[in-house]
Design a protein around this nucleic acid. Sequence first.
DNA 1: TAATTGTTTGCAGTGACTGCAAGTTTGTCC
DNA 2: GGACAAACTTGCAGTCACTGCAAACAATTA
Lengths: 207, 207
Amino acid sequence: MHVEGGLRERKKQQTRSALAEAALRLALEKGPDQVTVEEIAEAADVSVRTFFNYFPHKEHAILARNPEHLEAALERLRTAPAGESPLTTMWFIVHEVLRDLESDGQLSRRGELIMSSPSLLYQLMLSSIDDERQLTAALRERMGEPPGSIRPALIVSAAGTACRVAVELHKTAPDRPIRDLLDEGFQLLARGTDPDFGPDHHQKGHS
Amino acid sequence: MHVEGGLRERKKQQTRSALAEAALRLALEKGPDQVTVEEIAEAADVSVRTFFNYFPHKEHAILARNPEHLEAALERLRTAPAGESPLTTMWFIVHEVLRDLESDGQLSRRGELIMSSPSLLYQLMLSSIDDERQLTAALRERMGEPPGSIRPALIVSAAGTACRVAVELHKTAPDRPIRDLLDEGFQLLARGTDPDFGPDHHQKGHS
DNA sequence: TAATTGTTTGCAGTGACTGCAAGTTTGTCC
DNA sequence: GGACAAACTTGCAGTCACTGCAAACAATTA
């Protein structure tokens, strides 16, 4: 039987984090596209083949996404106070993840890294899509909406959008803290981004 | 000097579209990840090396994004009627692109293809990011907002989000036309996704 | 026709990634 | 402690994407 702290299990964790750390460090040093898997494996003192036993892609190792975040988010969603509105719940979730990342001291470094590299962004997107699916399902359930309903999906996606926009804007205007930008984004999403919206009024057949 | 209809120019266009068509056809037949560049090149009757003279990645050939779409969108943005609200403009733009894609008869096929393949989605995202940047800049100018302002960026990104959600939902509920889903999404974004949003009211230190 | 310029192609090489078939470790049972 | 099974690591051979270079080739221009 597998005991919690078996040697095997511990060694696996060690190898995994050694690889992840080496990957992140090297990516920060040399730029993510200049690092080869060979270097990462070497730095972690394992063979290249072993690297691929742990991570399907180079990018996975650099991101080394923490599955706990999604888990915590889903849990938060399930146990949200009765009166809390859906977007409010999402707001809390986002801020919690943010806090975790910050405590890592890796938010900005990793964030920049990700934004600077297409291939990293790619992997993040992929994970995000899957995350969003799960979050949407959970939120829909909580809201008691039918499967075809747009609102839960839109709220989850829009929250993600707010995050992306906040990070992006923070790059061009570093004086405003991310949380401020984020909150402003959420406010807009909540109350509406455009009170004058109305394509029906002037449909003059604009080619 | 280059005359409009030089032989050279025409041949290039031919090769380009031959490659793009072969890529799309094969991707639809065998699944996008089962197609090799070699097959595509062979089907278009050129060398593999030539393929890479035209497209930087396999995915680019399959997507064969039409740069005219972005161009038209930017133009529409610049020439929007004075009284038209920003999200309304985005609505028109999205519907125009949609119409173009539909007239291609490729919307659904290509759409499915894209959504089914991570690597395709990746390339689309990359293009989208760049597109969004340009659209945001144009919209911000039109709205007369300062560079750090969130609203233009959020409106553009949110419009993109609405599209993605619409496509996604259309997959699970094919009975609702994409345009309906899209419009509902835009309505929500315009008027607000959550009237009860308010993280400030019950900040009881949810850990 | 000859010179110029742009395009295609083959070739050699790097790097990501996979399957397979040994080795090596670790956990278990006696 | 030793034997056995399961899990982990590794090297190797191979495929595929993609790049740079230099030679061959075709279109354009003088």
